[in-house]
């Protein structure tokens, strides 16, 4: 692409950004009016959790979250279908290995904390899953070819676990006659926690496996190529 054309595009995009800023400003200046926020807060006592964001994700719009897990699964299937993962880096030196052996357990612990705290404060399955995934990324950067994950067969099960538990809870409530993913009052907190726990593990494994960038190699072949 030649220079004047690039300059032209840059100028046009500057104008576009200004228009965007103006639209944003106009939206911010508008009177609050009727908001979904009020509705979300009104039904919060019924949802079983105290954090409105978790209530939106796991209760009011649980379909969204279910399909989001399906998107993650589909992405991982796409990545796995492209072939085997590249071999990882060489084993880490002493300093990096020592840091990883400290940070990874802390990440897992913090992930568990975020999962629990999501019931009444910022946190939840996705934040906790992201921490688990980053633990896997660290392990792979430090030389573990499989990013700290178990065998391929176990990975398949873990990756599907989140969406499977979610769908099973939904089907269970449907069979009970109260509708797909409509939690019975009193049970909702524990059902949400169950779904979130499975989703956390699933998300963590999916993110780490996606970072590895391909189907996991079997350990047997590792022995041949050290």
């Amino acid at each position: 692409m030649n220079r004047p054309a690039k300059l032209m595009i840059g100028l046009l995009l500057c104008l576009f950004a200004l228009v965007l800023l103006w639209v944003f400003h106009a939206a911010l200046m508008q009177s609050p009016g009727a908001r979904l926020a009020d509705l979300a807060m009104d039904s919060l006592p019924l949802s079983g959790v105290k954090n409105p964001v978790t209530a939106v994700l796991l209760s009011y719009r649980a379909y969204d979250t279910l399909l989001e897990l399906a998107v993650l699964l589909a992405a991982l299937l796409g990545i796995w279908s492209l072939g085997a993962a590249t071999p990882g880096f060489q084993p880490a030196g002493a300093a990096l290995a020592a840091m990883v052996s400290w940070v990874v357990p802390l990440l897992i612990l913090t992930g568990g904390y975020l999962l629990w705290v999501g019931g009444y404060a910022p946190g939840g399955a996705f934040q906790a899953g992201a921490l688990l995934g980053s633990a896997g990324v660290l392990l792979r950067l430090a030389g573990d070819e499989r990013a700290g994950l178990p065998s391929e067969r176990a990975q398949r099960r873990l990756v599907v676990a989140g969406i499977a538990v979610f769908a099973l809870v939904g089907l269970g409530t449907m069979v009970a006659g109260i509708g797909f993913l409509t939690y019975p009052p009193g049970w909702s907190k524990w059902l949400i926690l169950l779904i979130e726990t499975a989703a956390t593990v699933s998300i963590g494994v999916t993110l780490a496996a996606a970072y590895a960038g391909g189907k996991p190699r079997s350990r047997a072949s590792d022995g041949a190529t050290p």
Partner: peptide
């Protein structure tokens, strides 16, 4: 803040990552 956009952003982040 309104919790609905926050939840939608969390959803969007995951889809963007995928």
């Amino acid at each position: 803040g309104d919790p609905v956009p926050q939840a939608l952003i969390i959803t969007g982040l995951v889809v963007a990552f995928a």
